[in-house]
Amino acid sequence: MEPVTTTSIECQGLRKRYGRTVAVDGLSFTVEPGRVTGFVGPNGAGKSTTMRVILGLDAPDAGTALVCGQPYRSLRAPLRRVGALLDAGAIHPGRRARDHLLWMAQSNGLPPKRVDEVLEGVGLASVARRRAGGFSLGMKQRLGIAAALLGDAPVLLFDEPVNGLDPEGIHWIRGLLRGLAGQGRAVFVSSHLMSELEDTADHLIVVARGRLVADISVADLLARASGDQVLLRTARPAEAIATLTAGGATAALTGPETVTVTGLPGERITALLAGLPISELTAYRASLEQAYLELTRDGAEYTAARVA
């Protein structure tokens, strides 16, 4: 893997229209190395178009998309820089799996043994000599992922990689994406279902109708949606409320022995309440899906300060 010297993917004011439809409308964001960045939005939000523009397949009407600091079309041996899975079905049904990867490897001067390595890595080694037309959807998806991994690139793009996979396949892809980010690569994954990215993405770029809705870390988004509430169960609620209020929190009795606390993290609460009997202390955690719905319901365009 070549070291990443500049921002992995950088889009500035991207605009793209097809006929009268504006697919992408002034989109700006960056994708950082070492984490999984989810690219989320409903179908037709412009995710695939953005990825096609990043890969130099479609030319934007305005704005720029840079990969490793350069336009994709100017990259030499681009597979060594960027690995991409756009459409797993885009294979010739009559070509053997290994041959499909072989011509790709040859086009970027990669050794044939790399083909066997990635086939092994995605679990397709035993069917390497089978024609891709006979592959199941899951096998095609694995072949597409093998193609993305071929150049050992520091930047990886996956367009809806989970589509049509069985639970085992979904589990496998999640582990793979986490592992790739763990190696320091920039992993950019689109999905129209936020729940698919739960426990996988570190950061989210949320789009709707071609515009940016949010550029936010998953932790921030969850904290925002959860409203940083903590549920406390204690036999002496009145004393707890008094202590917490004095400590700067907002605390209210929401059940016979239940206090809902906001404004303080769990560790501070336990520290303040040392000596009081606490039978339960739970952080209220919204699901990513709930957080996403809240985001899109507002319709507002807001961007959290990016963690440096």
Partner: peptide, 10 residues
């Protein structure tokens, strides 16, 4: 097949 996108990405 859409393979042309793969070709041009390579």
């Amino acid at each position: 097949s859409g393979l042309v996108c793969t070709t041009l990405a390579c």
